[in-house]
Amino acid sequence: MTATQRRSSGHSIASFGTRKGATALLLAGSLLALAGCSDSGTDASPSTPSPTQTAGSSSPGPTADAEDAAVIAAYTSSWDAQTEAYKKAASAGTDLKKSTTLQALADIEKDLAAMRRAGQVTTGKPVIHPKVVKVTDAEISKATVADCVDTTNWLLIDKTSKKEVPLPSERLTKYVSTATLEKWGTKWMVTKLTAQDQAC
């Protein structure tokens, strides 16, 4: 949560919105509570997946469907690992490096370090609704994923007291997020996650 700052990183994933006051970490992509925006803000664009949408295929055919499924699996794995890391404010012992590049991981590590300094961890988990919107076949193939991240039940708590850390009431608890992935060999890896200042 930095002031009016949009973060592009690996499944955020802890991206931030505006950090009003303090240690209230809006974990990206993660607890990403876009503090400067309200849920009553702009609606998600038509291309943003709704909770009922599932991963779609960027082009027809069984091969495209399989590739889309692999992209979503990598994206989901990255989120699962991030959730585990934020739960203990440390990436050690998680699978983050298996689905998230070092570039994206660097931003997550910054969040985790800030959480450790503040004595905070998370409880619960975010709910994601990813959809593949584009796959580009090249020497290093790339994919774009659009998501609606729901952090309603993903809470920041004080590690000692176990009490919830109050966050700005105007923050977004459901926000639009996009991710970029690259195919390294046979594996898809999350290279960038961007939380949008937009409700979904």
Rank of each mutant, 00 (worst) to 15 (best):
T4S: 10
T4C: 01
Q5M: 08
Q5W: 06
S9F: 03
S9G: 13
I13H: 00
I13E: 00
A14K: 06
A14W: 01
A14V: 04
F16C: 11
G17P: 08
L25I: 10
L26Q: 13
L26W: 06
A28T: 02
S30P: 00
L31G: 09
L31D: 08
L31K: 09
G36K: 11
G36R: 10
D39I: 00
G41A: 14
T42L: 12
T42K: 15
S45N: 08
S47Y: 04
P49D: 05
S50R: 14
P51W: 10
T54W: 03
A55N: 15
G56A: 13
S59G: 06
P60Y: 14
P62D: 12
T63A: 14
A64Q: 05
E67M: 13
D68A: 15
A69W: 06
A69S: 15
A70K: 15
V71E: 08
I72V: 12
A73P: 02
A73C: 03
A74Y: 03
A74E: 05
A74F: 03
Y75P: 00
S77Y: 01
S77F: 00
S78A: 15
S78V: 01
S78T: 03
S78M: 03
W79Q: 04
W79I: 08
D80T: 13
Q82S: 05
T83A: 10
A85I: 02
Y86P: 01
Y86I: 04
Y86R: 06
A89M: 10
A89W: 10
S91E: 14
D95H: 10
D95N: 13
D95T: 12
T100H: 03
T101M: 08
Q103T: 05
A104M: 07
D107S: 06
I108Q: 02
L112H: 02
A113C: 01
A114D: 14
A114H: 08
A114M: 06
M115R: 07
Q120G: 00
Q120H: 11
V121E: 06
V121Q: 08
T122C: 09
G124Q: 15
P126S: 07
P126C: 01
V127L: 12
I128E: 10
H129P: 05
K131G: 07
V132E: 09
V132Q: 11
K134E: 14
K134A: 15
V135G: 06
A138S: 15
E139V: 10
I140A: 09
K142E: 09
A143P: 03
A143V: 04
T144L: 13
V145N: 07
A146H: 14
D147G: 07
D150G: 04
L155C: 00
L156F: 08
L156T: 06
I157W: 09
K163Q: 12
K163H: 09
E164R: 13
S169P: 00
E170W: 09
K174C: 07
S177W: 01
L181H: 04
E182P: 00
E182Y: 01
K183Q: 07
G185S: 01
K187M: 02
W188Y: 01
M189F: 05
V190I: 11
K192E: 14
K192D: 13
D197V: 05
Q198W: 11
Q198M: 13
A199T: 11
C200G: 14
C200H: 05
